[in-house]
Nucleic acid binder design. Structure first.
Lengths: 234, 234
DNA sequence: TATATCTATTTGTATAGTCAAAAGCGGAGC
DNA sequence: GCTCCGCTTTTGACTATACAAATAGATATA
């Protein structure tokens, strides 16, 4: 393994493990060069690669800092409903419909590839954009991965936003489907039973452990996912 | 603009313009270094960045080559129905339902941000996977961007696959929605009218010019998009 | 003929330096 | 107080060079 790869993965690991938190300053190039007994060029190559991936932010004179965790925006321009809604200039609020701590059932455990008795926080949350129901969020948070969630009421901050601030992101899986609204969903979203809904399932990992699993169901006529992708310039 | 950025964009432009085609060999590092009057390190930095983005492939002793164009697989694991279906081990065939050359209408022109009188090839195509209708593809190909499409019948190769082989990709926009099947769509896909369908719209550009615009409609119960994304290692 | 070995080419990694650009900071002058 | 100037730190770009690793192709050997 080359030196700059070692530096890259060492720094990446410290960030993903939460050892270095967003905003923390990373040792300056000549310090890392001394630590790894290599030239500044080699350190620079590793840090530049991390910066390109958005893991860190570099500024002359002030140094390099751990960036705020966020799902890769080049992947899909959806991550957190409240942020998205506000960016688009809409009024957003939410209601927690249910919140309980329990253990994972057999079927779900298999679905998540997690042990059946794992303790989880189960949340159900309704998002309201511009006064109309916009999405139902059904979420499971693994309590061994995010113990702080046990004390959080989510009264003033939606779960998705809270998690993004708490947990550095390392891997995510998305599934997008079209489904017909069942009776319960239709009632909550104030739509007709059988209407087309867009369902997004996302499972997020940190260092191989599941952090959260969420299914977000939108009324099909009121929502769409959009993203522009291109090979970014240097 | 720095030297390595100039090299990067020069090579990128030659590839995206079709000047250098997939498989073509790129001048070796010392040739480019002489051309740009810089050191080999600088050339190396530019070419490595291109390799990381998947624009070129580098191999010791043999040199660097233009990679085959393909939609960034980290973005979304869908690009071309026939390739996807075959990779997943399904039997795939397709039928061209309509094919005509015409000029862009006012509404559509606005939607695509293209001049209203632009000549286009309009295609409608049904995809059948494992014997069942899987998707309707409604496609517009801009004939000034892809003149070769005028002579192509698409009898033996589906339009999506053909385009991927012809046109290098530079930018794409996706919109995913859930829609209820209208009468025509329902009849073609052999589903009930009003059933939930997953609609994917993709517009692809090359050097700022629209290449193609396509809407693919899947039966909601038979299809989903999935993708795993993580910060890739060096 | 088939296989092993050598050689030349090309990329990959690293060094030790230079100079430049950005930007925070303190002090001089008003 | 405020503005401007120069100092210093840190990153950014680049050079010239060195050696290593991979490997296609030529050559030698069994």
């Amino acid at each position: 393994m080359s030196i700059y790869q070692r530096i890259f993965t060492d720094v990446e690991t410290k960030i993903l493990s939460g050892d270095w938190r967003p905003g923390d300053r990373i040792p300056v190039e000549h310090e890392l060069a001394a630590e790894y007994r290599c030239s500044r060029m080699t350190v620079s190559k590793a840090l530049s690669a991390l910066a390109e991936r958005g893991m860190i932010v570099r500024r002359r004179k002030t140094g390099s800092f751990v960036a705020s965790p966020q799902i890769d925006r080049t992947v899909m321009d959806i991550q957190d409903i409240s942020t998205e809604a506000e960016l688009a200039g809409h009024e957003h609020r939410f209601e927690i419909l249910a919140r309980k701590v329990e253990r994972l059932g057999e079927t779900e455990a298999q679905q998540l590839s997690e042990p059946a008795d794992a303790e989880v926080l189960r949340l159900q949350c309704l998002h309201i954009v511009d006064g109309r129901p916009n999405a139902i969020e059904r979420r499971i948070i693994m309590l061994d991965a995010v113990p702080r969630a046990r004390e959080e009421s989510f009264a003033s901050i939606p779960p998705g936003k809270w998690l993004l601030e708490q947990v550095p992101w390392s891997k995510a899986k998305h599934v997008i489907r079209a489904v017909s609204a069942d009776t319960v969903t239709a009632r909550i979203l104030q739509i007709e039973r059988g209407e087309a809904c867009l369902s997004l399932i996302r499972q997020t990992w940190q260092n191989g452990r599941t952090v959260t699993y969420v299914e977000i169901t939108h009324p099909g006529d009121r929502f769409q996912f959009a993203g522009t992708f291109h090979p970014t310039a240097i």
